[in-house]
Amino acid sequence: MSQAMGVALAVCLLFDRRTDRLIRELWARLEGKGIRTLESHTHGRHRPHLSYAVLLEWDFVVVRAAVEDLPDKGGFDVSFQGTVAFPRGRVALAPAVAADVAARQEAVAGAVIESGGMLHRHYAPGRWVPHVSVATRATGAGLAVVVKEVADVLPLTGTVDRAALIDSSTGETWPLPGIP
């Protein structure tokens, strides 16, 4: 089992080049306005992503095998319609997801739990709030800046074209053979 304070392993959906570029451009605009984003957060190797599951404890080999055993459901489009603000100034793009995507997330969460991994409570079946992180600490006036910048690029349609396991402490990425 691996675990550490502030360290997590995530099952992430990654975007095609266009969507990745558009989100990175949003990060850069916000950084230019003094708002911290994933571009400058921790190790600086973050990529735009939508997390299916975030694990606080895991056995990497077992979790990887469990997720790789899930059927490849293929890529899909995501429609970003708004902003969601979480506690402590975390702000994200809010995607509308099809029922099939919510079912996929529950299957991933179930596989991770069955593998002995401990999910972060916000990724437990029935508790997932799909989001793509934008700002890491935007409060007060900064929150208004983020919401305006996001509103200026919406609506935005993106494409999920691959999946990976990502270590949040280092940015190390292990591509998955399919998209659960």
Rank of each mutant, 00 (worst) to 15 (best):
H122G: 08
T157Q: 10
D77R: 10
G32V: 01
H41L: 05
P48K: 04
A8E: 08
R64K: 15
W174S: 13
A163Y: 03
R88M: 02
V145E: 01
T19Q: 01
G110E: 12
F86Y: 12
T37A: 03
C12H: 06
W58I: 07
V132H: 01
V61F: 09
L119R: 09
R29S: 03
F86M: 08
Q105R: 15
L30K: 01
L9V: 11
E25P: 02
A141Q: 04
L165Y: 13
G117T: 14
H120W: 09
L50R: 00
G44N: 10
A135G: 11
A103Y: 04
E39A: 15
R21Y: 03
A92P: 02
Y123F: 15
V97P: 03
K33Q: 14
V78N: 01
G140C: 01
E39G: 10
A94Q: 13
L70G: 08
T139F: 05
M5H: 13
V145A: 02
P48S: 06
L143P: 04
V11E: 08
S79C: 07
V61I: 10
R24H: 04
V97K: 04
H120P: 04
H46W: 14
I113M: 15
L55F: 09
T159N: 02
R29M: 01
L55A: 14
R88Q: 08
R47K: 10
R64D: 13
V112R: 06
P95A: 00
A141H: 00
P48G: 06
L38M: 12
D69L: 06
Q81L: 14
A10W: 06
G89T: 04
A102V: 08
T136N: 06
I166W: 10
E114V: 08
V78C: 02
V112G: 07
R18K: 03
D100L: 08
Q3S: 15
Q105P: 03
L93N: 02
L93K: 00
L165V: 15
T37F: 06
A163I: 01
V145K: 03
I179Y: 03
T159D: 00
D72M: 08
L165P: 12
A96E: 12
L56N: 11
R36K: 05
D161C: 05
A85F: 00
P71L: 06
V134N: 05
D72Y: 14
L176R: 10
L22C: 04
D72H: 10
G116R: 11
H41K: 03
A99S: 14
S2K: 13
H46K: 04
H43Y: 09
L56M: 13
V78M: 08
I179L: 05
F80P: 00
V153C: 10
L143M: 09
D161Y: 03
F80Q: 04
M118N: 07
I35M: 00
T170Y: 15
A96R: 15
S79A: 11
S133I: 02
V78T: 06
H49D: 02
A102E: 08
A65T: 11
G110A: 08
R17S: 10
R24V: 00
L26Y: 00
A28H: 09
E68Y: 03
D161H: 05
P87F: 08
T139S: 02
A8L: 08
L55Q: 11
E39Q: 13
K73E: 13
T139V: 12
P125K: 11
V108I: 14
